[in-house]
């Protein structure tokens, strides 16, 4: 019970924090910054020339599923297995949303 009492105010704080525009900046990496690394290999807005797969017309769920499969090595890859291990579940979900939102 004592633990719950402490827990409730914190949640309230976090909820208020989430609705403020600056709350995310100091603690977690913004999806736009996370996804900025992707275009270096996959091309501007995910349009790839040559062998590296393009990231166009993908739904967020597909990107998320693929990244999680690379990370668990259920799907074989060259570099993506190594890279995806550097991201948390939440970051992968945020990255996937960002990649799916790119304008083509």
């Amino acid at each position: 019970m004592a633990a719950l009492k402490k827990w409730i105010p914190l949640q309230v704080v976090l909820l208020i924090g989430a609705s403020l525009p600056l709350a995310a900046s100091a603690d977690e990496t913004a999806p736009t910054v996370l996804a900025a690394s992707c275009v270096a290999c996959h091309g501007t807005s995910g349009h790839s020339a040559g062998a590296i797969p393009s990231l166009v017309d993908l739904k967020a769920e597909e990107v998320e599923r693929q990244l999680l499969a690379f990370r668990s090595e259920d799907t074989a890859s060259t570099v993506m297995g190594r890279i995806s291990k550097g991201y948390s579940d939440a970051e992968i979900a945020a990255l996937a949303k960002e990649v799916a939102s790119w304008e083509h």
């Binding site: 501007t44 790839s48 590296i52």
Partner: peptide, 13 residues
């Protein structure tokens, strides 16, 4: 192949 594609994508971006 990825090395060549890497160069093309990075420099074109």
């Amino acid at each position: 192949e990825y090395a060549r594609s890497w160069y093309a994508n990075l420099t074109s971006d």
